[in-house]
Amino acid sequence: MSKLLEVSNVRVQFGGVVAVDDVSFSLNEGELLGFIGPNGAGKTTMMRAITGVVTPTSGSIVLDDKELVGLAVHSRVRMGLGFSQQLVKPFRNMTVLENVTLTAGSRHTRSPLGALFKVDRERDRTRAKELLELVGIVDAADADPSNLPLGYLKRLEVARALALDPTLLLLDEPLAGLNHAEAHKLADMIVDLNSAGRSIILIEHNLGEVMRICSRLVVQDNGNKIADGDPESVMNTPAVRAAYLGEDMDNAAA
């Protein structure tokens, strides 16, 4: 199996806070990797480093044998990254469907000049509708995202990333805000996407679903990678158990 993503010795620092400390991991083509860890572990920061939203202080990130560090966010997205963010960011001056149609038609918007000469949206709207159907929010297609509950916005975020048809899909807590049944369904959809050949990194707090669907886990705690391997043995690692023991208390308090 060939490597799709190779993250080597990445370190991200915000002022005095080291959010990611010298982390390395890799992803094979076609893999569904669970990237987990307690709150504040630096998971989101790692995803942001991969997409280029934050710049690592050191380290390298290689996608398909191409170095990503130093490239602009949009270039990385054009190279095949799709990012569904933890903090949902719908375009609020568009409907749900328009949000997804925009990325479904991303081939039109590669350059401004090219985009000026293209008008038709029909085909991309159809595709966007299919994706809304897939994530289960087609009933809100014409809604203004400002009026929707988090569970809908999370799935909008996923559909919008998916519409880019990325070779690597990064999902940052897509199940948050969903009830048990909805979470189960979306997790099944993630499995289907993966079975269809899409490589996925899934950050998720819903450990039940993570254990159910992921073939491998990477665990990060306090900016350090503390485990990497098949879910069963990873969850039995003392360091992981210790990290989640503290987390369980946090969750109970929250």
Partner: peptide, 17 residues
């Protein structure tokens, strides 16, 4: 269409390519 996205949220516009 792309202008709409940029006018609303530049950072997210980058994340969608």
């Amino acid at each position: 269409y792309a202008f709409d996205a940029i006018a609303d949220d530049e950072d997210t516009a980058r994340v969608v390519g």
